[in-house]
């Protein structure tokens, strides 16, 4: 028998064809996951994503119910519909997970992110930055003669747009919180 000629790239798991042939459409979904606020729980959730090869585009977490000892994790992830369904099922079976909501699938939702931008510059650029910040309803939370720190809350897209505008005007640093989201209505 001759040595097998294994083609380049064939070490990807293609032969199992786990990928759904009809589901090539990649969707972005925002999931809200209510968990016990205990040490190790966030690691378990994140470990699920890395261990099973799922994406995390954004992640926020904070305690939301002090008495009930519950935290809310908002995670923005990407995948084909079957993968998204699998991510939700995998999250839901974790012992410290109380609820999983797919805000993208369950109806309209509001999504907000907070960002801080440090923009340095003098003269025209500085004035332009300030003018654009007003249009975008960004607040100045720190200023020196050479720099501003703007604070802005909005959708991730709005923050992206503002960052694009600031870049040529002297953008030095951005800090973003990641998305927090709630379903609309009562």
């Amino acid at each position: 028998m001759s040595a097998l000629n294994i083609k380049k790239g064939s070490s990807s798991h293609s032969a199992y064809e786990l990928r759904d042939p009809n589901g090539d459409l990649i969707e972005s979904h925002t999931l809200a996951v209510v968990v016990d606020n205990e040490s190790g729980v966030l690691a378990r959730v994140i470990g699920l994503f890395s261990g099973r090869g799922y994406n995390i585009d954004s992640l926020t977490v904070a305690e939301v119910d002090h008495e009930g000892h519950l935290s809310r994790i908002t995670v923005v992830t990407r995948g084909t519909p079957p993968v998204i369904a699998q991510i939700k099922a995998q999250l839901d079976r974790l012992v410290p997970v109380h609820e999983v909501h797919d805000l993208t699938a369950e109806g309209p939702s509001v999504q907000r992110e907070l960002a801080l931008f440090k923009v340095a510059g003098r003269g025209e650029a500085r004035i332009e930055a300030l003018r654009l910040a007003e249009i975008f309803r960004a607040n100045v939370v720190d200023s020196t003669l050479e720099s501003f720190v703007f604070e802005m809350t909005g959708t991730p897209e709005k923050i992206d747009a503002f960052a694009d505008l600031m870049r040529p005007l002297g953008l030095r640093e951005i800090a973003r919180t990641g998305v927090a989201a709630l379903a609309r209505g009562a």
Binding site: M1, L4, I6, K7, S11, H13, A15
Partner: peptide, 12 residues
Amino acid sequence: TQGVIGAKGAVL
């Protein structure tokens, strides 16, 4: 069994 497993199967 001769030569039945192709390159694709060999990576599994």
